[in-house]
Structure formats: structure tokens, C-alpha cells
Design a protein around this nucleic acid. Sequence first.
DNA 1: TTATCAAAAATAATCGATTTTTTAACTCAT
DNA 2: ATGAGTTAAAAAATCGATTATTTTTGATAA
Lengths: 222, 222
Amino acid sequence: MNKHSQLPAGTTSSPIYDVLRKDLVGGRFAAGEKLAINALKEHYQVGLSPLREALNKLAAYGLLIQENQRGFRVPKLTRDELDDIARLRTELEGMALERAITHGDALWEAELLAAAHRLKRADVSLDKGEEWERLHTQFHRTLVAPCGSVWLLRFIEQLHDQFDRYRRLGPKMPIIRQELDDQHHELVDLALSRDANAARALMDDHIHKSYEVALARFQAHA
Amino acid sequence: MNKHSQLPAGTTSSPIYDVLRKDLVGGRFAAGEKLAINALKEHYQVGLSPLREALNKLAAYGLLIQENQRGFRVPKLTRDELDDIARLRTELEGMALERAITHGDALWEAELLAAAHRLKRADVSLDKGEEWERLHTQFHRTLVAPCGSVWLLRFIEQLHDQFDRYRRLGPKMPIIRQELDDQHHELVDLALSRDANAARALMDDHIHKSYEVALARFQAHA
DNA sequence: TTATCAAAAATAATCGATTTTTTAACTCAT
DNA sequence: ATGAGTTAAAAAATCGATTATTTTTGATAA
């Protein structure tokens, strides 16, 4: 299996796309900020053409906004959009989880256990860095992987990135974070016991708790 | 209102993106074909940089496949993918229609009637060209527009483009096409009478009939 | 002081040419 | 003939420089 797994647009050449994507999701750029292309060029040590092509792809993906003759901008974060993303993620990821539980085979069970274990190992270090994020994304991806719909997986991944822009700016909230970590293992248990309804209900709650973390930032800054 | 309406990635500068998108959805390129960038450059009379940026966006959108150091390719058409797209379109468009019927206001009712009327005027001309396609897309977009979810609308538009790649290669099938045309008006009636369940059922059938048209090509060529 | 306009600076977008990589053609040995 | 290895041709990707557009600055007048 690829170490990067198959990204929808990640089949492309230069790694600048993936790096920028990671930095955008990780909040390295301020929401609403206008990107200074020359500064990016220098900072990431890439040429103008590969950079612009990456920015164009990110705009089509929804992590940037392209404005007519005035470059690229980081999308603003709004309460309304967070609600939209969380609700749609609940619907799509729930749908995918049901299908995955129907179709997932023994290999999937093994990979799911492995992904959950790797994530738990990273949970213990209280400071959750890029590595934890990677494992977390990978866990959720594994969970729904055998749903049978390439397009559904694609949309879910896109929504995850969007959602994470909000979540990763949220406060620590150690109690809720602990519950979230625990839920990953409960999700595995329910998936392995093929209890689609309970799994879906738990996923709904999981997303809702994450939503509360993300939302806290708005209430603090409002 | 814009004559092009708001496209997710259509905010950008050069019109080459929209032209290429239209041609890709319209089947101007063979499925699986490798794009000869220099030929495109000449044919569309654009420079290399704007062209490559458009191709990058189309790859991120899913209408092209970008391969590592060997350019761009038109995605193949497969029975499995058609099934996937049709099924997901049914779920998402049904979901959006329900929400639109809940939230749509009087202005929406008026626009919906207008869009249906314009489409019917184009229906009569048996040869359904680009103009009919535009009005058809516009009708379906209007139908779900007030669903309240920007991201849901975005995914639906993407799926529509993907679905249309298949549908537009399907055979004439005048009887089924006539039924499809009639269903547009029935959809308006059910939307205006706020009968979400019936509307959703009809939409399911509408997509299924279109699916049969698209599928016919596979059975012929198989 | 504020507003309007013009000039200058900064930035985005595009172009033409160069470099890199892939694909095709060819040679030669088995 | 077939296949490996080499060279030539084609194509993709990148670079550096130019052009077009926007934004900022500063001057002038109301």
C-alpha cells in the first residue's frame, strides 16, 4: 500500500500540492489571508509554474479561493459553513460507514484494528502534532474504505479537510478529546460486530463532539 | 443573475476552463484519450500557462486524470462508475430536493417555473444541442438551489457533470426521453405543492430513467 | 480636510525558451 | 524473429523574462 494512500488529486507530480494542502488544513495561513505568491515561491523553494498549478488545484478542491486578476485567498471560516460541513459529513460518512460494514471483508477488519492501534499509540502523547493528524485521517479513511463508492470517498475526504480547518483551531478541551479518542475504539468494535445502526449512531455523536470543539472557537471569538 | 451562474471554480480568469469543461462533459474527447497539449493550445488559441492551469483545475475537479510526468488523460467510462455516480446522485439530489422544498420561498417558485418553461421551449426541437443541455442543467440546479448547503450543491454539480458524460453518449430512445421531459414539469408541480416525499420518489425515478439511457450504450458496446 | 486624478510601485498573469523526462526508433546480439 | 540496450525524437514540465492589471502613493483642487 502507498504510504500516502491514493489521493484524488495526489497522483500528480510535484509535492508542493500536498505540502500546501497540509499547511492549509493545519491552519498555517490565516483565514481570509491573501497569499503572496512570491513569498510562497521563496518559502517552499519552488518555481512559479509548479506553484501556480498547485494553487489552481487547491482552488478547485476548495481550500483556496481564486479571484479574477488578484490571486488566491484562504477561505474565511464561518459558523454557517461549519454547520453545513458538519451536517453533510454526518450524512455522507454515516452512509459510507453503513456500506462499509456491509461490504468490508476480513482484510478490512485487520487494517481497521491496525489503524486504531497506531492511532491509540499516538493518542498518549498529549500534544497532538502532524503525526497524530495523519493517523487520525488514516483511521477514518480505513473505516469507510470498503463502502464501494469512489465518489463518496472522494467527497468525504474533501469534507474532512474542510472540517479539520475548523477543528484544528479549536481549544484543547481535554475531557471531550478523551471521549473522542475512546470513540475510535468503540467504532472499531461496532464495525467488527457488523452493527451498522449502532455504528452510525456513534459516528453521528463522534462528529457532533468534534463539531463542538470546532464551534468553541467561534463562541470564544464572538 | 450571472449568465454562467456561480461555478465552484468558475470564479477564475480565463474562459478556457469553462470551454474545456463543456467539451469534456459533451464528449468532444474520447474516453481514455491522452490530451495532446500542443494541439489543444492551437485549437483553443490559448497560451501554455493558462491552458495548463485549466487542465490542473479540471483534474482536481475529476474531469481529467493527471499522470505523473505524462500529461493529462480523459477518464475512462466504466459500468461500475456509472452505477456509483447514479446511486450517489440519487442520494444527494434527493436529499437536496427535500431540503429545498422545506426552505424554498416564493422567489424560488417563480424561478423554478421559469426554468421549466424555458426548458420546455427547448424540448420541442428534437435535436437537443448545447442550449438544451444548458437549460437542463440550469433547471436541475434551480430545483435544489435553496437546499441551504453550499457543499451539497457543489458535490451535486460535480456528479451531474460526471453523469452527463455518460448520458450524452447514450442512444436517442425517444420514448424514454419524452418521459424524462414530462417529469421535469411533474417535479415542478410536486415541489410547488411541497410534497417532499413524492418529489423525491419522482426524482429517484427520473435519475433511474436517465441511468437507463446512459447504460444502453454499455450494453450496445459490450 | 477630503476627494479626485495621475503616476509609480507592486503584483498577477502570460509568454517564449530551456530543461527534463518519456516514448519511439534503431541497432545488435542471441 | 525476439529482446536488450542505445540513440533520436517527441512531449511534458519548468524556468526567466515580459506584459497586463491592480494597488498604492502623492499631487492638486475643491
